[in-house]
Simulated assay, not measured.
Amino acid sequence: MHTRLLSTDDQGLAIACDWLSQGDVVAMPTETVYGLAGDARNATAVARIYEAKGRPSFNPLIVHLPDRVAAEKVAHFDDAARALAAAFWPGALTMVLPLREDAGIASLVTAGLDTVALRVPAHPVAHALLERFGGPLAAPSANPSGRISPTAAAHVADTETGLGGRIPAVLDAGNCPVGVESTIIGWVDGRPALLRPGGVSAEQIEAVLGQPLTRPAINPDAPNAPGQLTSHYAPRASLRLNATSVAPGEVMIGFGEVAGELTLSASGDLAEAASNLFDLLRQADATGRPIAVATVPETGLGAAINDRLRRAAAPR
């Protein structure tokens, strides 16, 4: 299969919708990373997402929708969920909520759970595609399962490290501005819980809810949200964290005052670091050398960056 790069004009959106309507998959840009979209109501389309990525079927997907009205047709919202939607949608927040019995979502999307992960993306191309398609789109990151997430169309279409040759098309909207996946929030024993750090900080969410988020223990063999596998976002090379200097033969990714051959952010800006993270991991991996990464603070977006780095460095 040849993977085609589509423009994001009316013609490109029309072609993408044609493939989606036929039960196929198309990679689309979001503000976080590129997602591999398929009709969330069509079991064949969802199976194609898992097949293209090589993703284990026990790992649930995020359903993308154009607005909260559409989202409330899929899941049950309470006052806290509506408050978070009002504050952060459209945007880089995913909520895991009780699935409606009449939602019409393919069971593969939820991995058989009675909850569903929902997000309203802020990227104008993702929104235009959702509006034009007229239905919910399941869309995990558009990369081989466990590997570095894509923040550019070229990452998706790469035949060695991406999905090139496995999917028909990518809507090419340039680089993703946020650069790390969405934050995932759920409710465990009635209390709001951080299931995955991401593009919205825990501190921002806690300010809206007026209470702290719990951090429940995660079972990577039975995830209740995407992004919880022990090894994830991984380059082919080994990865050493919290490096203060480069060892012989390594390529160094610096941050702040710790310089490197590549640098997440020389000024120590966490938003810049998040935006650069996956692209720099790809650049470092392309050298064929082991990778070292400088320490990143565990505050704000740093929590999401460190979560991705720890999983990328985990044993495979």
Rank of each mutant, 00 (worst) to 15 (best):
V246F: 07
L113R: 14
G91M: 06
G254M: 01
V25T: 09
A106Y: 08
A139L: 11
P297Y: 00
S7G: 13
D114I: 00
P121Y: 08
D279A: 11
G146V: 05
A87F: 05
A85V: 00
P315C: 05
A85H: 02
V296L: 03
F278E: 01
E181D: 15
L270W: 12
G91V: 06
V188S: 07
A138V: 09
L130T: 05
A27D: 02
T32G: 02
G254T: 02
R316I: 01
R316M: 05
E272D: 15
A92D: 03
E272K: 15
L194K: 00
A312I: 00
L118F: 04
R100G: 00
V26F: 14
P168N: 15
T244I: 07
P168K: 15
R191A: 10
L277E: 08
E203H: 04
R240W: 14
T115S: 13
L213R: 05
E250F: 14
S265W: 12
S149Q: 06
A106F: 12
T151Q: 04
E160G: 06
G104V: 02
A193T: 07
A154S: 14
S231M: 07
W19C: 14
P223N: 05
L229W: 09
V156C: 12
G190M: 10
A154G: 10
Q228A: 06
G190A: 06
L130R: 13
V116Q: 04
L36C: 14
I15D: 11
L129G: 08
T263G: 11
N143Q: 08
G164M: 08
D39Q: 04
P220C: 06
I167V: 11
L301E: 07
L195Q: 02
T115K: 07
L280G: 03
L239K: 00
P223V: 12
Q204P: 02
L270I: 02
R196P: 11
L301N: 01
T295H: 14
G198C: 05
T287M: 11
T299F: 02
P150V: 09
G288L: 06
Q22R: 13
T214L: 09
D67C: 10
S245T: 13
P90H: 08
V251L: 11
L171V: 04
A71F: 03
A43P: 14
L209G: 04
V180N: 04
A122D: 08
G91Y: 05
A37P: 04
A75E: 03
A138H: 03
G146K: 03
G288Y: 12
A173L: 10
D189F: 01
T244D: 15
A117C: 10
R68T: 13
A193C: 09
H2S: 13
S267F: 14
K53P: 01
P235H: 07
L171E: 07
S182V: 12
S275A: 15
S275K: 14
T161P: 04
L301W: 09
L195H: 03
E72L: 06
L163Q: 07
L309C: 03
N224P: 02
R100W: 10
I184F: 03
A237F: 06
V46T: 06
G104Q: 09
A313H: 03
T159L: 12
A43H: 15
G210M: 00
S57E: 12
W187M: 02
R166M: 15
A222C: 14
N242M: 08
T287F: 12
I291K: 08
G268D: 02
D285R: 05
R166K: 14
A304N: 03
F88Q: 00
G288R: 10
D79F: 12
E257W: 09
A103D: 02
I62Y: 03
